[in-house]
Amino acid sequence: MDVNDDRGLNPDGTIRREGSLSRVPTAYAPVVETARARIVEAFDSTRLHSAYLYGSIPRGTAVPGVSDLDLLLALRTGPTAADEAAARALEAGLDASFGLINGVGALLARADTLTSELERNDLGFFLACLCTPLLGEDLAAQLPSYRPTPLLARETNGDLYLALPRWRRRAAEATTDAERRDLSRVAARRIVRSGFTLVMPRWGGWTSDLAESAEVFARYYPGHPERIGQMRAAARTARTPSADPAVLAVLIDDLAPWLAAEYLAVHGVKAPRP
């Protein structure tokens, strides 16, 4: 496929916020409005600072029955065990209410963590460029503009190597096809996004499209045809998860370790979190 020459940038070269409520497909408008109402019911103003959408729905690329609903909830304190329980109930209720969506994920984070110096080029970037305001005061106003730099690459995915033991443990413990499909989706998405951010500073732009991400990676690793094929296959698995143990083995035991080592060699280690 052709790689988009737009590259997701503003005229000044900073990364453009990729979603907006105006891009939400008409079919998903009731989903978004119901999510807004139920978030307010679940989290009052003493708990919730602001709420955001991210993913394919605010980008306008959602596929009915395939795409999920992704939410970020910025809390004033916590998150507490009660907040986590409320978020899981919110997910289950929305998922049960709409066959249009294939699952719901609600991330919880403290507002001051999202705007902290430590998270400036990870969660801060995520909020400012990849999230669409849904409720409350937009924390992006407290964050800088972002450019596709090596620092951004390091801080977004410079910890891929830490995911490998978790994925291997989950693969070893999986007993159902549903568990294996879920793991293949999680690993494939993270791998493709890491493959993209590995070369993002050289490409000089941003995309969240996984197929395009794989093609951007391919542009800068022409001497690694096997890895290019694996990255393209990972992009397909991210959209259509597989329960095949052989697919998981390629992702977790071959492509991911190579990518993690290459990432550390090129960009270094992400700043440690407490």
Rank of each mutant, 00 (worst) to 15 (best):
A249I: 03
V266W: 02
I101S: 10
A187Y: 01
V192L: 05
F196K: 02
D6L: 11
D159V: 01
A111W: 04
A29R: 14
T77I: 04
S213E: 13
L143A: 06
R16M: 11
T61W: 00
S50T: 04
R232P: 03
D112N: 13
R88C: 07
V247P: 08
F43C: 12
R147N: 07
A109T: 10
A92V: 00
D2Q: 08
L114C: 08
L72Y: 14
V250N: 07
S242Y: 09
V192Y: 02
K270M: 11
G65I: 11
P225A: 04
G60F: 02
R76H: 13
D122V: 00
T34E: 15
P30D: 11
P58G: 12
A187W: 01
L139R: 02
A260V: 02
A211I: 02
T207Y: 03
R227S: 10
L264K: 01
G103E: 11
A86R: 09
R17F: 08
R47S: 15
F125M: 03
Y161F: 08
S45A: 15
E18C: 15
C129V: 13
Y161M: 04
R38Y: 10
T115S: 12
A172E: 12
A141F: 05
F43M: 11
G78S: 07
I39P: 10
M231I: 07
R190V: 07
R147T: 13
R154Q: 09
R181H: 02
T156H: 02
A188Q: 03
P79R: 00
E215P: 01
R168Y: 06
P150C: 02
A214S: 12
V31S: 10
A87P: 02
R147C: 09
I15C: 13
D122P: 00
A140R: 04
L210C: 07
W203N: 08
R23L: 15
R7H: 05
L198Q: 05
